[in-house]
Amino acid sequence: MLRLLLQTIKMGRLTEKGKVRLVPRRSSGLPKSFRQSLQIRHLDCGSCNGCDWELTATINSLYDLQHYGIDFVASPRHADLLMCTGTGTAQLLNAAHKTYEAMARPKWVMAVGDCAIDGGFFKGAYASKEGIGEVLPVDIKVPGCPPTPDDLIKALLEIMGKNK
């Protein structure tokens, strides 16, 4: 752990800031009702909690995610979007699949952070997958380690067809 900390201090940020990448096959079929509000179920699939802290920042008074009609819900049955953070560890894959199956249609999946997209720093680890895309059909990818609250809000507004 000390080695990783020293490496991070010496090298700085290793990931490049990228643009939000939408998968075009499903974003065009967005129902009109999604333009008014969006309900999100967050699922931590084995992350370091960096992305989770950034998600928490989106609902504070500075970013105010609820101002845009976007809210987090406790049940996947009420969610329109499943927001996944982490690599998809072996212990959580079944839970991720059950959560996805419990959602009503239409449903979308967002991979938040480099780990959820392709395994990130933990790529090749014995207890994790190469991102959540191996288990669930990912529609939106938000790169970064971790992505900023601004990047997250821009991605959510883009899928709703709004601009910030």
Score class of each variant (00 low, 15 high):
106 P>T: 11
116 A>G: 09
118 D>W: 14
108 W>Q: 06
100 Y>T: 00
106 P>L: 12
124 G>A: 07
132 I>E: 03
98 K>I: 00
127 A>R: 09
114 D>C: 05
113 G>S: 07
126 Y>I: 02
102 A>L: 11
114 D>E: 15
125 A>E: 13
121 F>K: 12
123 K>A: 09
105 R>A: 13
118 D>H: 15
100 Y>D: 02
111 A>L: 10
122 F>M: 14
119 G>F: 09
106 P>D: 14
123 K>N: 11
97 H>S: 10
129 K>W: 01
99 T>C: 15
96 A>H: 04
129 K>V: 04
105 R>F: 04
124 G>R: 03
96 A>W: 02
102 A>M: 13
119 G>Y: 11
99 T>N: 07
108 W>I: 05
132 I>H: 01
131 G>Q: 04
101 E>Y: 00
106 P>N: 12
104 A>M: 13
104 A>G: 10
96 A>N: 01
121 F>H: 15
114 D>N: 12
115 C>N: 05
126 Y>N: 08
110 M>T: 02
108 W>L: 08
110 M>I: 08
97 H>Y: 12
100 Y>I: 00
124 G>Y: 05
97 H>D: 09
112 V>Y: 03
97 H>L: 15
121 F>D: 09
114 D>I: 05
108 W>P: 08
126 Y>C: 07
114 D>T: 07
119 G>I: 09
111 A>K: 04
102 A>W: 02
103 M>I: 03
102 A>F: 00
119 G>W: 10
102 A>V: 00
108 W>Y: 12
105 R>P: 15
131 G>P: 03
107 K>M: 03
133 G>V: 00
127 A>C: 11
106 P>K: 11
126 Y>Q: 08
116 A>E: 06
111 A>N: 01
99 T>M: 05
105 R>M: 10
128 S>W: 06
123 K>L: 10
126 Y>S: 12
113 G>M: 10
107 K>I: 04
120 G>R: 07
126 Y>W: 14
104 A>I: 06
113 G>V: 03
112 V>D: 01
99 T>Q: 02
98 K>T: 08
112 V>S: 04
99 T>E: 01
113 G>L: 05
121 F>T: 11
98 K>L: 13
130 E>L: 14
108 W>A: 02
128 S>I: 10
109 V>T: 01
97 H>A: 14
123 K>T: 13
130 E>S: 15
113 G>K: 06
132 I>W: 02
119 G>N: 10
106 P>Y: 13
133 G>E: 09
103 M>T: 01
121 F>C: 12
116 A>L: 05
99 T>V: 12
116 A>N: 09
125 A>T: 14
129 K>R: 15
123 K>Y: 13
96 A>C: 13
97 H>R: 15
100 Y>S: 07
106 P>E: 13
121 F>N: 13
97 H>E: 14
114 D>F: 00
132 I>C: 01
102 A>E: 11
132 I>A: 02
131 G>R: 04
118 D>Q: 15
105 R>N: 14
125 A>N: 15
111 A>S: 06
109 V>Y: 03
118 D>C: 14
105 R>Y: 06
101 E>T: 04
99 T>P: 08
129 K>C: 09
127 A>Y: 10
97 H>K: 15
107 K>D: 05
100 Y>H: 12
122 F>W: 07
133 G>K: 06
103 M>K: 04
120 G>K: 07
103 M>A: 05
104 A>Y: 03
108 W>E: 02
120 G>V: 03
111 A>G: 03
102 A>K: 15
133 G>Q: 08
103 M>L: 06
116 A>Y: 06
